[in-house]
């Protein structure tokens, strides 16, 4: 069976859920081989990542622990993958549709003379060549595409499929790379992680509660957090909020923020501008609280309350807490 390369996203060997989803999809196309790139500061990534990768069907794990690879932006990783594509002629390469995942895919496509599909929401293996499904125009149109040249390179959105276990060996295979001069052009000199709380991660959460300009101030954003906590939800925000500095940027939902597709999306004090919708309109159930009955967000909702969020949201938090008790 042909190999399918899956680029592992991880934090020091702690494998992200999206990678387990990719391994699950990869099994439809062939035999998954995970590609694990570790940094010098965290040796032994393979030992930490092995169990999760094995459980989800990785027959092989290609490991590079060369510190140079992670010191430069995206280009070295693309070179590692290009080398593996050359070596193993895989049926496809799957990556997460993250900022880095898409850029690595882009470079790999140029390097290997292959077609690339980004933001797939499903991958099927019809007749040996993968067919990727994408939702375009804000979820209003579903498109199925095939790559016609080279090795299909596909980036898949998080939460596209539930991870399924299918134990395999996850045999280690070390990869040595010789990076080109061009790959060492853009050096990463610092990484800054802005505060990260106890709440679920936004792009993977089952429920998201977002606040917009209608919340009024940074202080008052605690009403959004309280509702999120009562529902076990992640907190999102509109750009108006992140621009005003009421809440950190990485919580922004929308065109230039995160794309979320939770079971439930709650929008409070958000008007529903097209750029905001672009990041949330494929959510399964949408509810909104807004004092303006004409707000465009109401065109999307399953349930909407026209009212002051400062009345409705705290009362809803109480109701939820009461019902859950």
């Amino acid at each position: 069976m042909a190999e399918v390369l899956v680029l592992v996203e991880h934090t020091d060997g702690d494998v992200k859920k999206v990678t387990l989803e990719l391994l699950t999809l990869a099994r439809r196309l062939g035999e998954p081989s995970a590609v694990l790139i570790g940094s010098d500061s965290a040796p032994g990534v393979y030992d930490r990542a092995k169990a999760a990768l094995a459980e989800h069907g990785a027959a092989k794990v290609y490991v590079t622990q060369d510190p140079e690879v992670s010191s430069y932006l995206t280009a070295p990783t693309a070179e590692v993958l290009a080398q593996l594509v050359e070596q193993s002629s895989p049926a496809a390469v799957l990556l997460a549709s993250s900022t880095d995942g898409k850029e690595i895919a882009a470079r790999l496509a140029v390097k290997t003379g292959s077609g690339v599909i980004t933001d797939a929401t499903d991958v099927a293996g019809e007749g040996g060549s993968p067919v990727a499904e994408q939702q375009v125009f804000g979820g209003s149109t579903i498109v199925r595409s095939k790559v016609g040249h080279g090795t299909p390179i596909i980036t898949v959105r998080p939460n596209s499929t539930p991870p399924e276990a299918a134990p395999a060996d996850a045999t280690r295979e070390d990869v040595t790379v010789t990076l080109s001069e061009a790959a060492r052009g853009a050096r990463i000199t610092d990484r800054v992680v802005e505060e990260k709380g106890e709440r679920p991660e936004l792009s993977a959460a089952a429920i998201v509660v977002s606040g917009g300009r209608g919340v009024g101030s940074a202080d008052k954003f605690s009403v959004i957090e309280a509702l999120a906590d009562s529902l076990g939800a992640a907190v999102g925000a509109s750009r108006a909020v992140t621009d005003a500095g009421w809440y950190p940027h990485q919580h922004q939902v929308g065109q230039t923020g995160k794309t979320v597709s939770p079971q439930l999306y709650v929008a409070a004090g958000i008007s529903g501008a097209i750029q905001h919708r672009a990041g949330m309109q494929t959510s399964k159930t949408i509810v909104a609280i807004n004092k303006d009955p004409e707000a465009p967000i109401f065109e999307l909702v399953d349930f909407g309350v026209v009212g002051d969020l400062h009345q409705v949201v705290p009362a809803l938090t109480d109701e939820v807490t009461k019902r859950k008790a």
Binding site: V306, Q311, A315, L316
Partner: peptide, 18 residues
């Protein structure tokens, strides 16, 4: 969708829906 105007009962209607 269903849209209701809050008359003090917006939250409980929304909770009912959820």
């Amino acid at each position: 969708g269903t849209i209701v105007t809050d008359e003090g009962d917006g939250a409980s209607k929304l909770a009912e829906f959820l």
